[in-house]
Nucleic acid binder design. Structure first.
Length: 423
DNA sequence: TCTGGGGTCCTAGGACCC
DNA sequence: TCTGGGGTCCTAGGACCC
């Protein structure tokens, strides 16, 4: 049976999470900042109404926020992550096939349901009731159409939060597609919008009516799939939850510019620890470690530098110590003294499931005793808080730490930060 | 002063091989 | 004088997503 895709997407997810636990904020405009308190990554409905744009650097909007009483919050991923998994378990309870696409979005397969649209309303109601999260539901025969339907559901109040393309005639759908710019299509970003505009393709309908082959020649295979999906031909399949990641990254900009190699080393060892933890959590090993280092591209007055280097391991590993040694070797290769660095990070590549690597008798493998130590460390860090236990080689240095001035409490995961109700 | 982090997929170009 | 071309692998980088 062909799948029927329902995209369930929470409205203003981060802002909503903040409001749920602090009723005083219920009707106030609110924005949530990125890591490091750099730019605005989420806005409540009231902030959107004030015209605050997504992604804006907060320093350009600080005065505006003060003037209009906008509440500014640092991001609290512990809280959002926990709310996200609650949302996911409700969806999994309501539908056997769920693909978690991002922290606040999932695709569901509603094929076989007697009335997908009605079920969409039920899903919406249940999320509202159980966790106070409002979402939009877009339903269609392809992922790209369900994305577009979701957008229509959110933008047009008359649909009550659910839009199903299958409930509309082709003529009606054409009218909807003609009414929205091509930039609303999933997979069409800024650059493509510009190029398509030059070619006279300005609305969703314009794109849907393009010839697949010529689009492929001019724009590549990705956009060709998008065109076909807009016409109802499914090209992107359903992926079940729990696929192991093929790359694992950990990177962060420094709170300030950093030139001291020891501070960079400290940051890098921290990133490796986090990445290795994620690697072990999905029961994988990796064979490559990429190290990235760069200056701040926004500071045009500074000398610019960015480099990545790949360090292959001599055996696939999930041992923090092994990965750490490789990362530090990479850092020595690309570090240039005297520059003002802004960000560093690591990426683990060539990831495969642990335990099935091809090895011959003489190829080194991870030391099982060390692996038991790692898994013990992981479980303690999981329950007692990240960083409770770490390898001695993980250097502690405050020089590069993030800023997060206005983070709300981790209401749902930390005993010390539970919400308090006064009777 | 202050501009995120994590992920995927595709493509172009160089190196290398036969 | 004339000095291949196609396949594959790797890497870097770009585009997109949220």
């Amino acid at each position: 049976m062909k799948p029927i895709y329902a995209l369930v997407d929470a409205n203003n997810f981060y802002a909503t999470c903040e409001k749920i636990f602090d009723p005083a904020l219920a009707t106030r405009p609110l924005v949530v900042l990125s890591n490091n308190d750099g730019c605005i990554v989420a806005r409540s409905a009231e902030s959107k109404a004030l015209g605050i744009p997504m992604g804006a650097p907060i320093h350009q909007w600080k005065d505006f926020c003060t003037e209009h009483g906008v509440v500014i919050k640092s991001s609290n991923y512990t809280l959002y992550g926990d709310m996200s998994s609650r949302m996911l378990s409700i969806l999994q309870d309501m539908c056997p096939q769920v693909e978690s696409y991002s922290i606040d979005e999932s695709f569901l397969n509603l094929a076989g349901y007697a009335d997908p649209s009605t079920y969409g309303y039920l899903i919406r109601q249940r999320l509202q009731q159980d966790i106070k999260v409002t979402c939009g539901v877009g339903i269609g025969p392809t992922k790209t159409l369900s994305k577009f339907a979701n957008h229509l559901a959110k933008k047009n109040a008359e649909f009550g939060g659910v839009f199903n393309t299958l409930d509309h005639t082709p003529e009606e759908m054409n009218r909807w597609m003609a009414a929205y710019p091509v930039s609303e299509v999933w997979g069409v970003g800024r650059q493509l919008t510009k190029r398509l505009g030059v070619d006279g393709i300005e609305t969703v309908l314009n794109l849907a009516r393009c010839d697949g082959v010529s689009i492929r020649k001019r724009y590549g295979i990705v956009l060709e799939k998008t065109v076909r999906e807009l016409r109802g031909e499914s090209c992107l399949s359903f992926e079940d939850v729990g696929q192991p990641k093929q790359q694992i990254m950990a990177s962060r900009s420094f709170g300030t510019t950093v030139s001291d190699p020891h501070a960079i080393k400290a940051a890098l060892t921290h990133h490796i620890s986090r990445a290795a933890e994620k690697l072990r959590a999905q029961q994988s090993v990796c064979a490559n470690v990429y190290v990235m280092l760069r200056t701040n591209p926004f500071r045009e007055q500074d000398q610019q530098y960015r480099r990545t280097t790949l360090v292959p391991l001599d055996h696939a590993s999930a041992d923090t110590g092994v990965l750490m040694k490789a990362a530090l070797r990479g850092l020595r290769q690309i570090f240039v003294p005297g520059l003002k660095y802004h960000k560093c990070g690591v990426m683990l590549g060539e990831i495969e499931p642990a335990g099935i690597q091809q090895t011959d008798l003489f190829a080194p493998v991870d030391d099982p005793k060390r692996l038991r130590l790692m898994s013990l460390m992981d479980s303690i860090n999981k329950t007692q808080g990240s960083g409770t236990l770490h390898l001695a080689s993980t250097q502690l240095s405050a020089a590069w730490q993030m800023r997060a001035g206005d983070r709300s409490p981790r209401y749902t995961t930390c005993w010390d930060e539970l919400p308090i109700a006064y009777a």
